[in-house]
Amino acid sequence: MIESLVIYIAPEIKEPDRGFALNLKQALDLESTSDNEPSDSKRAVFEYADGILCLHLLLDNKPTSLSFDFDDGEVGYRARRVSKSNELVARALGVKPNYRPKVLDATAGMGRDSLIMAMLGCNVVMYERQVAIHALLANALERFKLSGHNQQVAERLFLAQNDSKEFVKGAEGFDVIYLDPMFPERKKSALVKKEMRLFKMLAGEDKDADELLLGALQSPVPRIVVKRPKGAPVLANKKPSHEIVAKKFRYDVYLNS
């Protein structure tokens, strides 16, 4: 797991990139480094260039980089085709023709599920506690808003750096709390895809996932949705009101009284 974060600011970097990099350095109290490649597997290096924030890490002793993007790859493909009829998360949230719940995504991560929920018409507040992940997500969200590709969707997304464990009990003004804790390690030998391995290097394991659900159930929010791998045990031994099962995962839905 990553234990130290530093930032590389290239000598030739120009404004406004230099200003952003310096502000990030100050905000996160980062040390500077003269090289954009990490020196060991427990060290990660931020670099900001051309409006994109990325994090350089070592994976299997090979340099690699991680950045988030709402427009590219699998998430962009899925978002462009999202509809109430083809997204199980719409059923899990309780989306109806004339009803779009306000959602607290308490484990925002890469922001992908939040984007889909916003595409469905929901206003979504994203909480992310891990510093590096929050910074990467904030940059992706800013680029998404500046792109103007889907301004209505962008305006439904809000991000805060909060530890949800400290906030969910008192969450008010939401219709749904959405939890997607880190999936347990696979017992099979197949490697988790590269992106998720990098993500786990930053976030570690969600050892307090049970506590997070119990806190959510103490809140006044009427609906709690937990995304789990298919076949995984329920969190905190709490049986859901019902579940919605997909091929590789399921949604445990708790109707909170």
Rank of each mutant, 00 (worst) to 15 (best):
L28M: 13
D206Y: 06
L179R: 04
E3N: 14
G51M: 05
L191M: 12
L202Q: 05
P63Q: 08
F70E: 03
A79E: 03
R18N: 02
P16S: 05
S147C: 04
G170F: 02
K145I: 03
K42F: 14
E74N: 08
D206V: 08
V221K: 07
P222Q: 03
A27S: 13
L115T: 01
L191E: 07
A135N: 05
R91N: 08
S34L: 09
A108Y: 01
R81F: 09
L212K: 02
N123M: 08
D175M: 09
P184A: 12
K247S: 15
L213V: 11
K248Q: 13
K84F: 08
S39H: 09
R186S: 14
F20V: 13
S4M: 13
E12T: 13
V226C: 14
N237A: 15
I13D: 10
L179D: 03
I52T: 15
P222E: 05
A190M: 15
K193G: 03
K230M: 12
L53W: 09
N23C: 10
E195V: 09
L28Y: 13
S164W: 04
T33N: 04
Q26E: 13
L141A: 04
I177A: 00
L198Q: 13
A10L: 09
P222C: 02
V221H: 06
A246D: 13
L120P: 00
L235I: 07
G94F: 09
D40L: 05
M126R: 00
A108E: 02
I13Y: 08
H242W: 11
E166V: 08
K96E: 15
M182T: 11
A10G: 11
N162I: 15
L53R: 11
V168K: 00
L146Q: 14
K238G: 09
R250K: 14
D206S: 10
K25N: 06
D180V: 06
I9W: 03
H149L: 12
S65P: 00
L198P: 06
F144L: 00
L28T: 01
N23E: 14
E31H: 08
K62D: 06
V131R: 14
E205L: 10
E74V: 10
S39I: 12
R100Q: 09
R112T: 07
D208V: 08
G76W: 09
K238F: 12
V192W: 00
D29Q: 14
P220Y: 01
A106R: 02
D105A: 03
I244C: 04
